[in-house]
């Protein structure tokens, strides 16, 4: 499953339209808090180094680009850009009402 377009819904919300026409919705801070890069997640313990609520609300995306044909790279305003959100992972993070109500919270591939 791949996204076909990206849009800025509001200053903190990313919209992703998928191949199957699903309209994904993502809070950008939530995305950052779910970054899986080595700077954010301890490689061995799996412990998250950036905890929920630690990130200032002023940190927002600067640019979002596709990488290869498998994921999105988000460059944030604090310079953090190592996170790549694979399409499968991104889809699993969807916060739209439809995805969100199915379970409380989303099944995360990587904690």
């Amino acid at each position: 499953m791949k996204p076909v377009s990206l849009k800025k819904i509001d200053p903190r919300t990313l919209g992703v339209e998928w191949e199957d026409a699903h309209q994904g919705v993502y809070d950008t801070t939530f995305l950052r808090e779910h970054c899986t890069c080595a700077a954010c997640v301890d490689e061995w313990t799996g412990e998250r180094k950036v905890k929920t609520g630690m990130l200032p609300a002023t940190v927002l995306p600067v640019t979002i680009d596709s990488v290869g044909n498998y994921g999105l790279q988000i460059r944030f305003s604090d310079g953090h850009a190592t996170g790549i959100y694979t399409y499968d992972y991104l889809r699993s993070l969807c916060q739209c009402p439809g995805c969100h109500s199915r379970e409380s919270g989303n099944p995360l591939l990587i904690p």
Binding site: L6, K7, L14, I64, D65, S66, G68, L72
Partner: peptide, 12 residues
């Protein structure tokens, strides 16, 4: 061939 598939870009 892989790149020719449209790439996505969004400036915030």
């Amino acid at each position: 061939k892989n790149v020719s598939e449209e790439s996505l870009h969004l400036k915030w």
